[in-house]
Amino acid sequence: MSISFVRIDDRMIHGLITVRWGKEYPCDGIIAINDKAASNPILSEAYKAASDKKTFVWTLAHFEQVKDRVLNSSTKYFLITKNPQDMKKILVDMQFKPSDVKTVIVGPGNDRDNAIKLGDNQSFTQEEGDSFEAIEKAGYQVEFALLPDQRIGNWSKFKSRFGY
C-alpha cells in the first residue's frame, strides 16, 4: 500500500493532519501537491517543518512524472492537495488510483465570496463542487470531515446545493 489517506485541506499540512488523522490512517510520510507551494522554497520548507514525517511538496507536473513510483512504493503516504481542483486532476485526469483508498476526506474550506457553506469552516465554490462531482463519478466517496470525529456528511448530502 502506498497511499493510506487522501485529503483536500486548504491548510495542507498542520498538526492535526499528522496527529489526529495519523492515528486513524497510519503513514510514514506526506505528499502535498500544490504548484504555488512547491515553487516557493520558503512555503515548501514551512510545510515540511510542520510534520515530523518525511514530507514532499510537489507540483502537479512533478507528481504526474513520479506517480507510478508513488503507487509502487512500500512507504505509506498521505496524499494532500490544497483544493478540490488539484485532487480532481490527480484522481480523474491523471487516473491515479491508490488501490486501498476509496474515500477522499475534505477538510477546511475558507468562507469566500460565492462559496456555499456546508458546515463550520467548510465552504466551497461551484468550481470546487464540480470537482467533487467528478471525483465521485470516478468511483470515490467524498466525505466532509475536519477531524475524524467531526464528520458532517458526504457529497451525496450536499451535491444538490451545487446543482447535482
Rank of each mutant, 00 (worst) to 15 (best):
F96Y: 12
Q65N: 11
T55K: 14
K89D: 15
C27Y: 15
S44A: 10
L91V: 05
A115T: 11
V104C: 03
P108Y: 15
A50E: 02
A50C: 08
S44L: 08
A46V: 07
V19S: 15
P26Y: 12
G29A: 03
I42M: 08
G119A: 09
D111H: 11
S73V: 01
K76V: 00
V106R: 03
E45L: 12
T81R: 04
S44N: 09
N83W: 09
D113K: 15
I116S: 00
K88V: 00
L91H: 05
F56T: 07
D120A: 07
I33T: 01
F56E: 11
L118A: 00
I105H: 13
R20K: 14
K117F: 00
I31P: 06
R20M: 12
D113L: 06
K53M: 05
M94A: 14
G15V: 01
N34V: 00
V104W: 01
S74H: 12
K36E: 15
D93H: 12
D28G: 07
V92A: 03
M94Q: 14
R69V: 03
V104P: 01
T55W: 07
N72A: 06
D68Y: 12
L60S: 10
E24R: 15
P108I: 06
Q65D: 11
Y25L: 02
Q95T: 09
D120T: 06
F56M: 14
K36N: 10
L118P: 03
I90D: 05
L43T: 07
T75C: 04
G15N: 08
V92I: 01
I116Q: 07
V106L: 02
D111E: 08
I105K: 13
